[in-house]
């Protein structure tokens, strides 16, 4: 995989933490906006547990509408937290099926969290609108999302 990337443009990290004292801020990246949303899902699962231990056992179809793209990103993350609270479901793979400014269709594959097999990392209460942004960068799209812990 890495060998296919040109030496001058190393593969960007899909998500990284920004310093934030009380909560957790993610800087997310995607070559396209759908990829940015997929990476947001991965970042959330990686916050709660070690994503590598999640098996592809079940699929959830997600369909959301919001006022705009930024609000849709917050709603997407909060819906994933909802799925987690309801029956412990955590996504390993995230696939955006369609995405417009106000509507998201996505498919999430993963399994229910099992404290015996999945490390318990950081619990998240919600994704917030605080400092929320989605901006175009030269190699794709970048978003900032602050999570309330």
């Amino acid at each position: 995989m890495m060998g296919k990337q040109p030496a001058t443009s190393p593969r960007r990290r899909p998500y990284r933490q920004l310093p934030h004292t009380a909560d957790l801020a993610w800087r997310l990246w995607g070559a396209s906006i759908p990829e940015l949303f997929e990476n947001a899902g991965r970042a959330l699962s990686a916050t709660l547990t070690d994503r590598r231990y999640l098996r592809r056992r079940a699929t959830r179809e997600v369909s959301l509408t919001s006022v705009d793209r930024e609000a849709l990103l917050v709603d997407w993350l909060n819906h994933l937290l909802y799925l987690f609270d309801v029956d412990g479901f955590l996504g390993r793979d995230f696939q955006v099926v369609s995405l417009t400014g106000e509507r998201l269709e996505a498919r999430v594959t993963g399994e229910s969290f099992d404290p015996a097999r999945h490390p318990s990392l950081t619990a998240v209460k919600a994704a917030t609108f605080h400092q929320l942004s989605i901006v175009a960068v030269k190699d794709g799209w970048e978003a900032t999302v602050v999570l309330d812990l």
């Binding site: 310093p19 934030h20 004292t21 950081t122």
Partner: peptide, 9 residues
């Protein structure tokens, strides 16, 4: 008390 360090730190 209020946090002094981020969770990461």
């Amino acid at each position: 008390a209020g946090r002094l360090m981020s969770r990461h730190q």
